[in-house]
Each structure stands twice: as structure tokens, then as C-alpha cells.
């Protein structure tokens, strides 16, 4: 096997490809003929922002020349704007994000709400989720941690979300409404790790407003609100006014998730009686 690391600061030179191929024991005209293929593959990977560029299998014809029988390339999303000309050539539409699956209505709606308002960032996914507890959670790491905490304690999340970057009231409201409108969702858990940029009071307004606009009682619908941090005193006043159970940083993310799970389970037991 031949293996080599390339500099990203300069165009991958031919000699590096030659060295790598020579490590496999190839020599003679095979070496000189295979070298440009590997060198061009390396340049292609760099020039077109690929995260993977693979030729497999590579075949040698009777005349000694090499041809690629199949190839696999992956371009990263962050580079799509500057690779637009190539994507246009390939007929990849700007709206086609090439997800590994078809986005759901929930995912499309959340995306539309996010792009309509530049304040803050929200994301929503429900592929692979089919539970009854709606999650209005954030931010990146907090969402991962909280989704685990709900599942580990027997809860069944209906979805995954991320709130970040201090969204507007209407954006938080829009996200909560989408989660609440999912089939089978009766309650939502509104939770984040300690926030420093996103404001507690703004998210509180958003999720309460979502309940009110859907004619639901916020105190009944929001199983738990656990977002400590910026403007929490103001946020807690709002939550108190609407009878929503909330907690500060003294209640861990795990405990808050557990309370939400317990509430939804109690309700099911009561409902089945």
C-alpha cells in the first residue's frame, strides 16, 4: 500500500503522486502512466472541495493504459456556494441538499420559518423519531445531550430541534407550533444548556405564544422549561404568569428531561385507566 499526506497550501504536485504509487512497488511504464491519474484525482479533491474522492476499481488495459471503471466523490455543503458552476454543470439544483433521505413536512416547515427571519437559527429533524414528547431544545451540544437524556429515561422524543443565536419571539413560536402540530404530540419539553446569547425571556414568550395560538394551556402543554442563563429572571416571571413549571441551573439537564418524561408517562397511565 502507498500512503502520503499532501499540503493544502499548494497544488498537489505530480511527484507526490509518483512517490505514493512507487511505494506500492509499481515501476516502469505502469508507474509513469498511473501517476497523472492519482495527481489529477488529488487536485480534483482539493479544487472542488471534496471530502472524499475515490476511484475504484482502476483497470489496466491490454495496451498498458489505466482507466477508471467507477468513481465516488462527495462535496461538502459549506463549499456549495463557490462550487456553483460545477453543480450547475451536473444539474444539481441549489435547493437540492442531497440529504440521505427525503425531508419531512416538519423539516421543510421549520426550514422555511428559519429562512424567513434572519434573527437566530432554528433547525428541526424528525427522521427516525416517532415518539409523543415534542422537543424544543438547543443549542448544538445541548440538543444532543438532552435527546439522550430523554431517551435514556424511557422517553420517546417526537423530534429533534436546535435553537441558537438568539431567535426572535416569532421564530421560537413558529418552531414550537410545528412541534406541537406533529401527530401524537401532546406536550413539549423546552430545554437548553445554559444560554449566554439566546435570551430566556424571548424563548419563553415564543413557546407560550405557540400554545396560546393553538388554543392550548401553556401550563398543561409545556412539560418543563429548563433554560438557565441570559435574562432568566425576566423569563421566569413570564413562565410563572402562565403556570409553566420551570427550573434554573440547579436542576441538571438530566433531571429536567426526567421530569418531562415522568409527566408524559403519568398522563398516559391516567388516560388508560
Amino acid at each position: 500500500m502507498g500512503r502520503g499526506h499532501l499540503s493544502n497550501l499548494v497544488e498537489p504536485p505530480d511527484f507526490r503522486a509518483k512517490e505514493v504509487i512507487s511505494h506500492t512497488g509499481l515501476t516502469g511504464s505502469e508507474l509513469t502512466r498511473a501517476t497523472p491519474i492519482l495527481a489529477r484525482l488529488a487536485r480534483l479533491m482539493r479544487d472542488y472541495d471534496m471530502t472524499l474522492a475515490e476511484i475504484n476499481p482502476l483497470a489496466r488495459l491490454a495496451d498498458g493504459s489505466f482507466v477508471a471503471l467507477d468513481a465516488h466523490m462527495e462535496m461538502e455543503n459549506e463549499a456549495r456556494p463557490r462550487q456553483r458552476p460545477l453543480l450547475d454543470d451536473l444539474g444539481v439544483d441549489p435547493t437540492d441538499m442531497r440529504e440521505p433521505y427525503e425531508p419531512s413536512a416538519f423539516e421543510r416547515n421549520v426550514k422555511a420559518i428559519d429562512s424567513a427571519d434572519h434573527r437566530g437559527v432554528i433547525q428541526g429533524k424528525d427522521h427516525g423519531f416517532s415518539g409523543n414528547l415534542g422537543l424544543v431544545i438547543g443549542a448544538g451540544g445541548g440538543s444532543l445531550t438532552l435527546t439522550d437524556a430523554v431517551r435514556s429515561q424511557g422517553g420517546r422524543p417526537a423530534n429533534y430541534t436546535e435553537i441558537g443565536g438568539n431567535p426572535s419571539v416569532s421564530k421560537a413560536c413558529g418552531l414550537a407550533k410545528e412541534v406541537l402540530s406533529k401527530d401524537g404530540v401532546e406536550k413539549i419539553a423546552v430545554m437548553m444548556s445554559i444560554v449566554s446569547n439566546t435570551r430566556v425571556d424571548i424563548v419563553a414568550r415564543g413557546v407560550i405564544k405557540a400554545c396560546l395560538e393553538l388554543d392550548k394551556d401553556p401550563g398543561e402543554t409545556i412539560a418543563i422549561f429548563r433554560i438557565p442563563g441570559a435574562w432568566e429572571e425576566e423569563g421566569f416571571k413570564i413562565l410563572e404568569r402562565y403556570g409553566v413549571e420551570y427550573c434554573d441551573r440547579s436542576v441538571s439537564m438530566w433531571e429536567a428531561a426526567g421530569r418531562a418524561v415522568a409527566k408524559i408517562q403519568e398522563e398516559q397511565v391516567a388516560g388508560s385507566r
Binding site: 419571539v169 406541537l180 402540530s181 401527530d183 414568550r205 395560538e213 393553538l214 413570564i238
Partner: peptide, 13 residues
Amino acid sequence: MEARSKELEAVFI
């Protein structure tokens, strides 16, 4: 289930 939705104003401020 299609949730009925309205737009509320001045709930908080």
C-alpha cells in the same frame, strides 16, 4: 391532525 392556528398580538408587551 391539522391544528387550528391564530395569530395573537401583544400577549406580553
